[in-house]
Amino acid sequence: MTRWTPVCELAALDPERGVAALVDGVQVALFLLDDGRVLGVANHDPFSGANVVSRGIVGTHGERTTVTSPMHKQVWDLVTGECLDAAGKDPVDLAVFAVEVRDGTVHVGS
């Protein structure tokens, strides 16, 4: 049973940029894309150990939408959390979070 936690207004998000949210003590990185989708992954960067994924640059790799760690430039698929470029390390994926926008409010599922 998914529990939905409202975190912010959709208007608080900038397109192609991320923000961090605290959901029951868990740090989630939320990204609003150009096409209006909002995607959520873990904010914890498993490579550096810092909570910085939300501050990474959004981009594309082929058809996939990606985020790059601002710390050491590892790249993940924002939809699946799959690590696409581990920058020479063993790949570690990110947990993904369900996100819904209802009546202009962004909800994170847990």
């Binding site: 900038d14 397109p15 550096s48 810092a50 909570n51 910085v52 501050r55 640059i57 601002p70 710390m71």
Partner: peptide
């Protein structure tokens, strides 16, 4: 410029240099 905001890496976005703990 707001149009440039998504282009900047975190240093130019936050106008500060990120350290190892974020």
């Amino acid at each position: 410029d707001p149009a440039n905001a998504p282009l900047q890496d975190t240093n130019d976005h936050a106008l500060a240099n990120m350290q190892k703990d974020g």
